[in-house]
């Protein structure tokens, strides 16, 4: 396959960025999208140009490091996958592909296609945990948990923290991310104990960090590589409101 690539280049966080056009040739349809970028970068180095910086690590869809906005879609034009799992067979020979970094005020661009997602860490530091120390915990089977609840908790826990939700949301809202963590722990008896505190603390942190508000468009769910449902946002809202009532 031969492809034209329109890629966002930006020297650093403060510099003004812009698009540049590139060409790659003879790419196998079985190549992954990031491997295609590897090929491009290799060519660029040989041509004496600066290779394109993009975040990536596990390349099997679980670490959440890759983050490209491809042809208008977070993680590209396929459902339920991350960019690293996108393969070139999803494109046609001769296509022009537009590649942009995540765009959200809370995710500033660091360089080219890499953005700073430390805001997500900060939200989790605000309360995305169960306050237990190592050791001194009861036997794992001491608290039975219904399969349904455990499964729902796992559905939410599948979040990889990639940022596609906030990057897709027209409001730059991180609600799906926050909801995934709150909901996952809220479905478990261990997590319920400090559920109210968690919901309030995480939402407050999210607001403080400048993420937008949820207007229930559902775009996050549509673009989430792990298919996390906005039902978890409803649960977060429930948790949050009942926590506020308790005050």
């Amino acid at each position: 396959m031969n492809l034209k690539l329109k890629i966002w280049r930006q020297k650093n966080a403060k510099a003004k960025g812009g698009f540049e056009m590139y060409h790659v040739e003879n790419v196998s349809p079985d190549t992954s999208f990031l491997e295609m970028l590897d090929i491009l970068n290799n060519n660029l180095i040989h041509e004496g140009k600066e290779p394109i910086v993009f975040d990536h690590d596990c390349r099997e869809g679980i670490c959440g490091m890759c983050s490209l906005h491809i042809n208008g879609h977070a993680h590209g034009p396929d459902t339920d996958i991350t960019t690293c799992q996108l393969h070139m067979r999803k494109f046609k020979d001769g296509d022009t592909i537009v590649i942009e970094p995540w765009r959200s005020a809370a995710f500033p661009v660091i360089k080219d296609l890499a953005v700073d997602r430390s805001a997500y860490d900060k939200i989790l530091q605000a309360g995305g945990f169960i306050s237990v120390n190592t050791g001194g915990v009861p036997d794992a089977n001491a608290i039975p948990i219904s399969k349904k609840d455990a499964d729902e908790s796992m559905d939410a826990a599948a979040c990889i923290g990639c940022g596609a939700c906030a990057a897709t949301c027209k409001n730059g809202s991180a609600m799906l991310f926050v909801a995934a963590r709150v909901s996952s722990l809220a479905k478990l008896p261990q997590g319920r104990i400090e559920g109210a505190r968690r919901a309030k603390a995480m939402v407050a942190k999210m607001d403080e960090l400048g993420f937008g508000n949820c207007t229930n468009t559902g775009a996050c769910e549509a673009e989430c590589p792990k298919g996390i449902s906005i039902a978890h946002i409803a649960r977060l809202n429930r948790e949050f409101l009942s926590a506020k009532f308790e005050d």
Partner: peptide, 28 residues
Amino acid sequence: LTLQNRKARGNVRYAVTAQEEGVSWSSK
């Protein structure tokens, strides 16, 4: 809320946006 959301969205917009599957026009 809209002002807040616009600020949260950032100054640089996507050059290409696409309609997400299953997202209603009115919601946006």
